[in-house]
Each structure stands twice: as C-alpha cells, then as structure tokens.
C-alpha cells in the first residue's frame, strides 16, 4: 500500500515534469519524482521498531541482525540526494539564465529550436 503511494507520487512528478508549461513547475515536478524514488528506497529498508545499524565489538550478532535496519538503502538515498542537488542547482542556474534571455518562464514562448 505504502509503496503504491510512492508510485502515485512518482506519477504526479512525472505529470508535472512533462505536461506543465512553466519552467519552475517542471523543475518542481522533477524534484518530486526524484524524492518519490528516494522515499521508495528508504521504505525498502524500513523495519518496525528497528535499531540503527551501528555495530561494535560487543554487539550480539543474531540479535543485531534481527532488529537492525538495512543500511544500504540509506547510503543509496544519501548518494542520490547529492546527485539530485547537483541536477537541481544546474537546472535552477539554467532557468535563471533563460529568464534573462527571454524574460519569461513559459516554455511555449521559447521556440528558437525547431525541426
């Protein structure tokens, strides 16, 4: 059920990125898509009453594996957040430059490339 909500969020983002005419809304749509995937990844590692996956020498291994959450999705999400930050800042920079050139955020008015 909760995974289905993630996919719904993903589809909302996809709709925003593909069907909207305003650059800012397109950027928001892409960000929503990305965070839907991040949410999905983090939910993969979810465990009710789980504990943080930090091990020491005194840790009881069977008890640890029974309760600890999966650390890999967390690492993946952190990486994909960093990548998302890079893409987002590049997109915003290009959007600002485009606004300087055209004086608008509407993509239907930017039509120098055709064919």
């Amino acid at each position: 059920m909760i995974y289905a909500m993630c996919f719904l969020l993903f589809l909302i983002g996809l709709y925003g990125a593909t069907c909207k005419k305003n650059i800012v809304k397109i950027i928001l749509g892409l960000v929503i898509m990305e965070y839907a995937v991040n949410l999905f990844l983090i939910l993969l590692g979810w465990r009710t009453n789980g504990q943080a996956p930090i091990m020491s020498q005194q840790t009881d291994l069977p008890a640890f594996t029974a309760t600890a959450v999966d650390p890999i999705p967390q690492a993946l999400v952190l990486t994909s957040i960093v990548i998302g930050l890079g893409i987002l800042s590049l997109m915003v920079a290009i959007a600002i430059r485009l606004y300087e050139r055209y004086g608008t955020f509407d993509i239907t008015e930017m039509r120098r490339l055709k064919g």
Binding site: I26, L98, Y102
Partner: peptide
C-alpha cells in the same frame, strides 16, 4: 550561454 544553447541544455536536462 546563448539562448538556443540554454534552451537545448534545459530540454536535454529535463
């Protein structure tokens, strides 16, 4: 950073 280049870059980016 010309208008067409930015436009192409944004399209590619999205």
């Amino acid at each position: 950073c010309e208008a067409e280049e930015l436009e192409a870059s944004f399209k590619y980016l999205v």
